[in-house]
Design a protein around this nucleic acid. Structure first.
Ligand code: MN
Ligand code: MN
Ligand code: ZN
Ligand code: ZN
Lengths: 123, 123
DNA sequence: TGACTTTTGCAACTAAGTTGCAATAATATA
DNA sequence: TATATTATTGCAACTTAGTTGCAAAAGTCA
């Protein structure tokens, strides 16, 4: 009853996305899997729809994806070497923001938070 | 001694960017100022370099700009109608995050935070 | 095995943004 | 003010991430 078929290509891509701890771009995948770029883009779209992966947009405007079975977290991004480090934020940001948002009758559902700076190597 | 010249085009664009409270895209400007798109992109780059405006990348991947003389703030974005509302966040996010970041010897300089949800009209 | 449906590759396309170059406009200086 | 200098502009051509239509290939299920 699952309309998604587990093709060779799909499993290879999923394996890579599951095993790579940090967000992967379409181009990264293209270099590692012998498949047409059209297929990469279509598979990424399909996997997002299926809830297997999540898109993460970086400020260099590259769109990357990471496995969806991760806990909610954020990223530290080195502005020099582009290294990405996962980080979890201790407080409930949405709850804090909802207080100000309520004044405008805005209902917050999700948020997106990234930090920029220098990694150990680059400082 | 200022290498930036205050041309007709530049003043028109600056005026729009100063008077529009919410982030403006290159396309927005193109529709309002009778000027070539190449000029728009070059002026935006130049104004960012000069520190007059700041680029803001939204998760829908549109790049927008807003006047740089604003206090640090964030955005509430309606996922339905794309309305943008400015919001300030009461706490020092970077300080809180720096505690976790220090474990990886990462030095935070800036951050980027957006909230998504529904505006009053769309809920 | 088929029949049915999804996935794939290919080539052509789209759209945001960039580049080189010659013409034009702004500014500095005589 | 007139002229020299340098930045800005428009244009056309280009780049590049991502998209689309279509026919062939592969996956699923009876
Ligand atoms: Mn991550
Ligand atoms: Mn704003
Ligand atoms: Zn680094
Ligand atoms: Zn709305």
């Amino acid at each position: 009853m699952n309309k998604y078929r587990l093709t060779q290509t799909r499993s290879q891509l999923l394996k890579l996305l599951k095993n790579t701890p940090l967000p992967v771009s379409a181009e990264d995948l293209l270099q590692k899997v012998p498949v047409n770029k059209t297929t990469i883009y279509r598979q990424l779209t399909s996997m997002v729809a299926q809830g297997l992966i999540k898109p993460v947009l970086f400020t260099d405007r590259t769109l990357r994806y990471e496995s969806a079975d991760r806990d909610h977290h954020h990223h530290l991004i080195c502005t020099n070497c582009k290294k990405i480090i996962d980080i979890s934020f201790p407080e409930n940001i949405e709850q804090t923001a909802q207080t100000s948002a309520s004044a405008q009758k805005f209902k917050i559902n999700t948020h997106h938070l990234e930090f920029f700076g220098l990694c150990q190597n680059c400082q």
